[in-house]
């Protein structure tokens, strides 16, 4: 049984997911433009779903994907994110990492979405992992923090990325979230109070990831790769190290630690996804996309069409032609879970 307001969105491609995110988070980015980038990192067919049940001042969402994906967005001044994984009691291995905080059952992370000095956030969501995401409004949260005198919570939100905590407040927060998705709650205050208590409550063996040079390096790397100059050959490793002011070896270690692949493979994944998104562009006629498919690949740095086709098929389990043919069909399946229940 699902909550009254819950809706499930199912995507077969990440372009639709990006536009879904844009529509859903605008409210939390009132003073800045929201944009995000999503890339499939593992190989295989993709099905992604998001069950979304927003209430006043809180955006609540459960996200799941059949493939490992990399999500990136700009940090902002207006909202705070709390994300955790729900393994439903099973001890499964997940390679989910939120901006450098490696997620285990006790983890709550994503605080760096609030960043007053610039920056961006990146998440790797492991295949078949259920990721619970809660976005709260910073202004409301700050008022409550001031009232409660919860400066520990304040400090953690501004200076940390995530924590591992077994505090009773964090357990209550997670179960309240679950209750919302089964029964449907209408008030967001309890989410705010429990989120603050989770951060404020001391915990015996709290593990936390602080924002530091090390975490900023990966943030900057992800941003750089997404901003990489379209139409130009991909950045070389020495260009990247120069730009990020780091050594080749430490960059390579950091990349393997976080993305479990060499940096060149990460660049390739991001660029492949960019080509796929251009094939899916709903504003370009199918005929034109067919006519320019090779130029499109070349534009993102793939010089050899045959090799590109091989990579493309290995990653997405479909050929560029199949993607172009699919692009005219509606790719988001929306189900109103309440409607389905009442039928």
């Amino acid at each position: 049984m699902k909550a009254r307001k819950a809706k499930e969105f199912v995507f077969n491609d990440l372009l639709s997911m990006e536009s879904y995110c844009k529509n859903h988070y605008t409210d939390y980015y009132s003073k800045s433009n929201f944009s995000c980038n999503v890339t499939q990192l593992s190989k295989g067919e993709l099905v992604t779903s998001s069950i979304c049940a927003p209430i006043n001042d809180a955006h609540l969402e459960i996200f799941k994907s059949s493939q490992t994906i990399l999500y990136e967005e700009e940090a902002n001044h207006n909202s705070v994110a709390f994300c955790w994984i729900n393994s439903n009691g099973e001890q499964t291995q997940t390679n989910t990492i939120i901006s450098g905080h490696r997620m285990v059952d006790l983890s709550i992370a994503g605080f760096n979405r609030l960043n007053k000095t610039g920056g961006n956030i990146w998440d790797i969501v492991g295949a078949n992992t259920q990721l619970c995401c809660m976005s709260l409004k910073w202004e409301k949260m700050k008022k409550k923090i001031d009232q409660m005198n919860a400066y520990n919570a304040f400090a953690k939100l501004e200076e940390c990325i995530g924590i591992d905590s077994n505090s009773s407040a964090s357990i209550q927060l997670k179960s309240l979230f679950e209750r919302h998705f089964t029964k449907g709650l209408s008030e967001s205050d309890a989410f705010y109070d429990l989120a603050i208590a989770t951060l404020e409550e001391p915990c015996d063996q709290e593990i936390l990831t602080e924002r530091s040079d090390k975490t900023e390096l990966i943030e900057d790397l992800v941003k750089l790769l997404y901003e990489d100059r379209e139409g130009m050959p991909p950045l070389t490793i020495s260009e990247i190290t120069k730009y990020l002011n780091t050594g080749k070896e430490s960059l390579s270690i950091a990349c393997r630690e976080n993305f479990n692949m060499p940096i060149l493979d990460l660049i390739k994944s991001i660029r492949l996804e960019q080509v796929k998104k251009s094939y899916l562009n709903p504003h370009v006629p199918k005929g034109l996309k067919n006519f320019t498919k090779k130029q499109n690949a070349l534009y993102y740095g793939f010089k050899n069409w045959t090799t590109f086709q091989k990579f493309y098929y290995q990653t997405f389990q479909e050929s560029p032609d199949e993607t172009i043919n699919k692009s005219t069909k509606a790719s988001v399946l929306v189900t109103d879970l309440f409607m389905r229940r009442s039928q």
């Binding site: 007053k116 005198n149 400066y151 520990n152 304040f154 400090a155 953690k156 501004e158 200076e159 940390c160 602080e210 924002r211 530091s212």
Partner: peptide, 28 residues
């Protein structure tokens, strides 16, 4: 420096450091 570096250097807790900075400078 990170927040914990500063706390260690000034020998103070993060909550009191944060409270003082918010009160007097309006930021973390």
């Amino acid at each position: 420096m990170t927040l914990s570096d500063v706390c260690q250097y000034l020998d103070t807790g993060q909550a009191s450091l944060y409270r003082v900075c918010q009160d007097y400078f309006g930021m973390g």
